[in-house]
Design a protein around this nucleic acid. Structure first.
Length: 310
DNA sequence: AAGACGAAAGTGGTTGA
DNA sequence: TCAACAACTTTCGTCTT
């Protein structure tokens, strides 16, 4: 791995993420993709793109709601399809018919607007290009499935971006997405869940470690503190302290403790702010860390060292 | 005065009958 | 569909530095 660049050519940060699976090196500070050998990670998706029906049907296996798919793949206008649909389905039907008429003005206009918005938000958050593309794909699918109906375009954009971030393991918090898109946080979460569920996108639970570098640099902490935090995090994971808990809270608590141990004290409020959680959560998490891990010993050591200095 | 701590009540989401 | 439940937040009072 020594052949990899160690510094981001854009901002000089050493805050790099190497993802062997995808062949990417991404700067976690500015989002620059330094090296990209990625062919195409989500094969099954790229086929969905705009090549609608045939390919759609061939690769439709993982989808549960195949009925709607067939709706796309079949000639729209056949009565047989109509009577299966009711309510929302009817409007989907009209949408689909427009689509197949190829003029498809509505959807195209929607896409044009939405993708512009998506681009704006993505660059605001300094997201890697790969994430932006994935989000675009997700959004396109959502539009084609009529999932935007009843929701604001912007919120679906935000949801798609959030999902894409998660898939690419460059997590942004819901708060950040919310701030960038000026959509209510709950709404972002809602559409995110809805879209991923309807599209059958599998999201791996986000890993607290992914948050560490960004929070650390926001707090201007030393690299040593940062790796200390990752260490703590790994111990926590081994002690099963991480399951079921909000990943940001755990990441924040680890950072807080790591900062204490490295004489880089930050207040709970500072850490809480960048992590988007409350001080209370940090306290709870780091109390748990204290109890379960042998952090007590480390704290003692630290105190002893301070005594000597005096 | 500011930060840390903890208790209590409230919120939104998940789960299981 | 509804109620119980866990995680997290908000708020507030107290203690420590």
């Amino acid at each position: 791995m020594s052949s990899y660049v160690k510094k981001c050519s854009e901002c000089g940060s050493i805050n790099l993420m190497i993802n062997k699976d995808k062949g990417e090196v991404i700067c976690r500070d500015c989002g620059l993709v330094i090296e990209e050998r990625m062919i195409d990670f989500g094969q099954e998706w790229s086929e969905f793109d705009s090549e609608q029906s045939e390919k759609r049907r061939r690769t439709g296996a993982p989808m549960t709601y195949t009925r709607y798919d067939r709706g796309l793949g079949t000639d729209i206008g056949q009565k047989g399809d109509i009577f299966k649909l009711q309510g929302k389905g009817m409007s989907k039907f009209f949408r689909l018919r427009k689509w197949q008429y190829r003029i498809s003005t509505a959807i195209e206009r929607n896409l044009k607007l939405a993708l512009a918005e998506l681009k704006r938000v993505a660059s605001y958050l300094k997201l890697p290009k790969s994430v932006e593309e994935e989000a675009s794909r997700i959004y396109t699918m959502a539009v084609q499935r009529g999932l935007v109906r009843g929701r604001s375009m912007e919120s679906v954009v935000a949801g798609a971006l959030y999902a894409a971030c998660r898939r690419h393991e460059v997590p942004r918090t819901l708060d950040e997405l919310s701030e960038a898109s000026s959509i209510d946080k709950k709404e972002v979460g809602r559409t995110y869940r809805f879209v991923t569920r309807e599209l059958g996108i599998r999201i791996l639970p986000s890993n607290p470690v992914d948050y560490i570098p960004r929070f650390a640099s926001a707090l201007k902490l030393n690299p040593e503190t940062q790796s200390k935090a990752v260490e703590i995090l790994e111990m926590a994971e081994n002690s099963e302290l991480t399951s079921g808990r909000g990943p940001t809270g755990i990441a924040a608590a680890s950072l807080y403790v790591a900062a204490l141990l490295n004489n880089e004290k930050r207040t709970q409020r500072e850490v809480a702010d960048v992590a988007g959680v409350t001080e209370v959560t940090i306290r709870n998490r780091y109390k748990e860390l204290f109890k379960k891990l042998n952090l007590k010993d480390q704290m003692k050591e630290k105190e002893e060292q301070e005594e000597k200095q005096k």
